[in-house]
Each structure stands twice: as structure tokens, then as C-alpha cells.
Design a protein around this nucleic acid. Sequence first.
DNA 1: CGATTCCCCTGATAGC
DNA 2: TGCTATCAGGGGAATC
Length: 291
Amino acid sequence: MPELPEVETTIRDLKEKILKKSIVDVWTDTKKLIKRPKKFKIFKEELVGKEILDIKRRGKNILIFLSSGKVLLIHQKLTGHLLFGKWEKINKEWVSKIAGALSTDPTNKFLHLIIFFKDGWQLALSDLRKFAKVEILTKEELEKELAKLGPEPLDKDFTFEKFRERILKRKKGKIKQVLMDQEIIAGIGNIYSDEILWKAKIHPLKRVKDLSEGELKEIYKAMKEILLKAISAGGESISDYRRPSGEKGGFDAFRKVYRREGEKCFRCGSKIKRIKIAQRSAYFCPVCQKS
DNA sequence: CGATTCCCCTGATAGC
DNA sequence: TGCTATCAGGGGAATC
């Protein structure tokens, strides 16, 4: 699922592709993805004739800055991903004109929103579960929307002291839940919280107040290392996430626990366990992750 | 107010 | 074979 490394990969790829392009048309078959403006006709008017000036990431949000001064915000949620290519409609179905993953991988076939550029290229949102969120905001509305988010974990000035200060806002919380709390730190989800805690050798249910200074440091270090590693790999490949090219990321080579229930821990050989924490799966090694 | 539960959605998978 | 029940899960709303 798209977390910080996947969203970062997406915006880096897109920057190579769609900057300066002019929008000429927009299509959707799922209007409920578009949260505002509520009416699709107005949403479309806000896009057509505009140019893409810049693309940024904040937490798990993709921010596309338009020449009108407004911003197109896309949150991919669980199964959404942006694709860059050319499609044509054949018998009510969008068929990719580009060979490779874009046309063969079934995950790339759930197109629910397409933005058409003047030069014939297209930006599409593929989303099996239709949970993604798309909206156009003014800069003020954007600021308000992002105000709740915690700091960026990879910012240079997000020091260990700041990390500790953020985490300790949830003293009673379980560390996995706290790492995934977007108000505490932005961008970490289910996959990377598991991977971070495995690397730091900390049990996901451990309460924040019970973490030693040394353990907090291990989590901080693992967080930076894993997120950077995942970005350099181009994101994960275990879920529906795909890069704008339609291809999977390469993080699978480094994945240690997520979705490895019953398999051997790469560190100690014990069987990886899965438990539920707040409706979500948590994978961990019951032997080398200390509670 | 904080913590928990429900809900959005649909392909994959298990069970019969 | 084919049907039905269950599951996955980010985040916002509803509820405890």
C-alpha cells in the first residue's frame, strides 16, 4: 500500500513526466473519489486549460500544483496508484497503448480517473477498492488540510530529540500504532511500521512509556534507514502499489516481516507471528522483538 | 475527551 | 463447479 516511500517514488517519477504539461480533458466513472469540488463539472473546469507547475509530497499525500494557483491533492489510500501512459477506450474499457506492465498487469486496469494532456499523454488513477481521495484546494485550504499532519520523518531537522518529543505525545499508546499515527509522524503505514520495529528489535505492542532511551534511538535509526532504503528501491511490491510506469518497486528484496506469517525470522529463525492491533495486522518475531 | 468500532470497496481465497 | 462467507486496510465518522 502506498506509504511515504511509494508516494515519494511516485512524485519523483511524475516530475520527470508531467511538469509543464497542459490539461485538456478529464474523465471519471467514479465521482465519489472526487471530494471537492463536489460537482464533477466544476472539478473538470478547475483542471482544463491549466498547466502542471510542480509536484510535491506531504506525508502520504501527492500535491500537484496548478497554474491557476490551486492544488490537486491525491491520497491513494490502500490500492490507488497513479499511472502515466496512453489509453484508448475500446468497448467501454480503457486499453493501454503502451506495452509492458502498463498493459499486462491486472492491477493497472482499474482506471477510475484520467487526466488528458495536450500532447496526447495521460495521467490515470487505478484503484481496485475505490478508496482514493482526490480534491482541488486553494493554498489556504491545503494548508488547513495538512496542518494536522506530524513532521516529515526524513527531514534533516527531524532530529532524535524531536522524534522523541513527538512519540512521547502518546505515552500510553502501543508503539506500532503511534508510529502509524499521521498526527505524530507523517507517512508511515502498516508495512514500514512492522519493518522498522523488526529492525529495532521492539515488540509492536510495547507501550511508549516503557521504551528506554536506547530503544527509542534504535527505532529512530531504523525508521530513517528503512524509509531511505525503500525509496531507493522504488517502493514496495507486496500490495497493489505500482510506479507510474506500471512496474512494481524493488523493496521486496529487503522486506523482513510484513506478510511473512509462519516463515522463519531472518535473524533468529523463529516463526514470524501475526496479531491484530486496532483492526490491522502486525507481523513480528516473537523471539527477537522484545516486549 | 480518549479509545474503540464501524464503514467505504472488491478481488482473492477458503470452505462446503 | 459454483456459490457464499471472510478478509485486507487508511482514515474519517460514529459510538462507547
